[in-house]
Write a protein that binds this DNA or RNA. Sequence first.
DNA 1: CATGAATGAGTCTTCATTCAT
DNA 2: GATGAATGAAGACTCATTCAT
Lengths: 212, 212, 212, 212
Amino acid sequence: MDAKKGEHPRQSRRERRIERRRREILTAAAQVFAQKGYAHTTTKHLAEAADMAEGTLYNYFEGKREILLAILNEMYVPIDALLENARPLSTRDDFVRIVENGLEIFVSQLDFTRALLTEIWVDDVILNDLIIGRLQYIGQAIRGFIARRIEAGNFRPIDPEAATLMILGGFIALILPVLRGKHPTPTAEERHRLAQTAVDLLFDGLRVRENQ
Amino acid sequence: MDAKKGEHPRQSRRERRIERRRREILTAAAQVFAQKGYAHTTTKHLAEAADMAEGTLYNYFEGKREILLAILNEMYVPIDALLENARPLSTRDDFVRIVENGLEIFVSQLDFTRALLTEIWVDDVILNDLIIGRLQYIGQAIRGFIARRIEAGNFRPIDPEAATLMILGGFIALILPVLRGKHPTPTAEERHRLAQTAVDLLFDGLRVRENQ
Amino acid sequence: MDAKKGEHPRQSRRERRIERRRREILTAAAQVFAQKGYAHTTTKHLAEAADMAEGTLYNYFEGKREILLAILNEMYVPIDALLENARPLSTRDDFVRIVENGLEIFVSQLDFTRALLTEIWVDDVILNDLIIGRLQYIGQAIRGFIARRIEAGNFRPIDPEAATLMILGGFIALILPVLRGKHPTPTAEERHRLAQTAVDLLFDGLRVRENQ
Amino acid sequence: MDAKKGEHPRQSRRERRIERRRREILTAAAQVFAQKGYAHTTTKHLAEAADMAEGTLYNYFEGKREILLAILNEMYVPIDALLENARPLSTRDDFVRIVENGLEIFVSQLDFTRALLTEIWVDDVILNDLIIGRLQYIGQAIRGFIARRIEAGNFRPIDPEAATLMILGGFIALILPVLRGKHPTPTAEERHRLAQTAVDLLFDGLRVRENQ
DNA sequence: CATGAATGAGTCTTCATTCAT
DNA sequence: GATGAATGAAGACTCATTCAT
């Protein structure tokens, strides 16, 4: 129980094993939640998917709900990285790049995202954390970008609020069919093309410019 | 006990009472489903919300799930009417009008719509019926409109598939905050303004037209 | 409410109507009980079979169980008559006649008998009333008959107790397939033949008499 | 924890424990079913009788009905053994022996047999499986025996069908009072005497043989 | 740490009975 | 008397969590 041969290696190895186990559980759980929805998933399902006994789950998580919240946490890291990257967001290419990165994140975390879909609308912690915390942050970045561009005379004086919502909605709509498994997951090239189309549409609209 | 005055009124009164009661249950149920989500709502909750005994629910619906499906059906009528109206969809004003009507429908059915949000991802009948059935239909109308306009030289040759998705997503994004109760329900005027902004953005994009 | 034109005719007509209604209910109920068993029969089933509303049943009977007990009572009249008839029971023909009559009673009351079958084993009132009350009475008659015959030297000195049981059992076995609907209901002639065969078997056994 | 001594013991111990538990439940359930009848028995009753929580029952059986069916299966083993034994059935002693064995089986399985009595009339699976399947098989054996004996001139030319029914009925009648708890369970000696009396009655009838 | 049997509160649903019309 | 909607107690079954091994 006490130190032997230096504490680090031993503690560390144990911690690493625990961390590995937790991640195994989360990966498996995300798949099951994604397929059945949180409420319809039983701990038995989770245990089977993680290939362990039900009781073992409780050695790594406090309960079913905590597993879901841990999944939520897993998504923060790449999203925060994305936001960090997107901070400047000043040119059209910035926009393409951030949309592309966003698509990449969702694609690489499909199961985690899907897992949250059902409880998003119901669980206030998740809703506030994810939607309010992250999405609003993203929204602000976009709103700021638009406002600055309008001020600079590059963008038409459109209500930035509505525009932001539609941009986010458009982006979500692009991945929703994939999340629902109705579309195959797009390749890197497809993601690039999608991002360009999206930004193109947003910037220039559907209508033909008369004299260009 | 009194004169019969024709048989209709008597049958009719009973039928009307039943219909009224069903509607009462649906209205109450939609609110509860919207707040708690389908799976987290118990029949006890439903009974309390409808101010009746649990057993009474079963005089009007076969079970909890049938109540949800009945809510789903309630949404068909106005949506189908909207689609019928939107059939031509040829001018920009058509577009504004249909977006405006769509917003109106969702607003008038807020609770019903919210009620479906959670189970949409999990219940295949609902998913296929509602999303695939309706949304695809709407999508086709939009895709057709875009394709025709591109052919006519009015629209730029953008991928109609991606454009449709983004339009739908943008539209949904406009309502989502309202659905989640994060925005107050927009008034008729606000809906009109929103619809115009949305269509304006879609048609002309964010960027300033250089020579206009 | 009080007397008018003599009480009898009016009371009588009302009473007769009530009696008729009760009988209608019992007839219908016996069929349903017979098919589904008492416990699996709902008052809704009973009401439908009697072609009236559920509530109306309660104007004629205290509840579901009382309907079953009333069915039990219906069987007493013919059984008691049979027993009265069988009182002497001294010749072989008496035996044939009483078996024949017994078969006739069961056949004419098939549904009533079937209706009681499920609850016989469970309801102590029914068990004590019917089995103990009636069957034991019948058993005593048979036992007495056998004992007297043995004493008179007509019957071999077989244990009258066991013999009685086997006689009753044999009789029941003859009607059981009919009760279960596995045999068609026997005609009068078939009943006569069955009774003769049964008594013949009981009196003379299976074995060939060596010198007769 | 200790040496493995081969893998069997470990798997086996768990399996044996499960098997023991299942049997405990069945034994307890049979008693309750026998007393109250299947339909009037609640899972709460069953749990109490087996001295465990309601939920635990479901770790061993799929549901209430499966417990009943398992009880049904318990009865097959000895009955099938009896039938196998009785195959030849050619002498009078064979007959005595098989009746005696039959009595023994029923006595040793009193609760199991009682448990089935109520649902027999209502549950088609049970009815067809047990009654039709087993009883008809037994009936055929008896019919065949009688027919052969008649042909051989040992038995009088009595309708074998009716005779079989009465034999089965007589046998059942011998046990019914015991099943209902109205008689104490017969000892081995009493069973032997009963069997002899029964066969004696069947073979030689009640009447004194005039010249014997 | 791993296991999985045991637990019992909680769910959906049924149905005998009541009672206002 | 007849009706059938309303009731709510009771039933079969589920499942997150605990805990002895």
